[in-house]
Nucleic acid binder design. Sequence first.
DNA 1: AGTGCGATTGACT
DNA 2: GTCAATCGCACTA
Length: 199
Amino acid sequence: MAIHRPLARSELPGDTASLARYLVGKLVVRELPEGIASGRIVETEAYVTGDAAGHGYRGMTPRNRSLFLEAGHAYVYLAYGISYMLNVSSETPGIGTGVLIRALEPLEGIAIMRLNRGIERLRDLARGPGRLAQALRIDRSLDGLDLCREGPLWLAVDDHQAGDIGQGIRIGITKDADRPLRFYVKGSAFVSGPKSLNE
DNA sequence: AGTGCGATTGACT
DNA sequence: GTCAATCGCACTA
């Protein structure tokens, strides 16, 4: 497998929804003591300015401060006391917006991911934000990390041709639930969510 | 200091 | 299909 070139901060689209679409087809690369684990992003969601569903909606707090970093930093939080969620901060410093990475197509380090998840089935290793974080052993210790440079976790380009990208409503939220801010690779078996939303 | 609630998952009917 | 698990944290007082 070729060396992974990190995404340059300068090439990230400036607005959150555009970044969410842009990240579909890019790579998430995780360096672990056992080796590299990586996957292709197949599903994202944007949490934009003025969005009641966004964690930055009510201003900065100890939990969400990473969301207010300049674009390309990790915001990791624990959902439902059970699952960690990986987000990429977007826009300019002081703006609390970001992109949730919801699903990956596993590429490298699949054996590592299987161990981290405790399951075998390839399709379920990183299909869903909590599963993805578990597969890559992502937790709050990675919160605030710069994802535009090599390190324990980063984003990289992929020369693979991305398939058609669909757009629709986000999963699992109750506020501002009708906004079409979810992006996914049409027809991918590695996308989460109900079949009716993945066509 | 107390309370209620999730950007989910997996187990179960 | 339904539903409980589980806990950090934002919010109220």
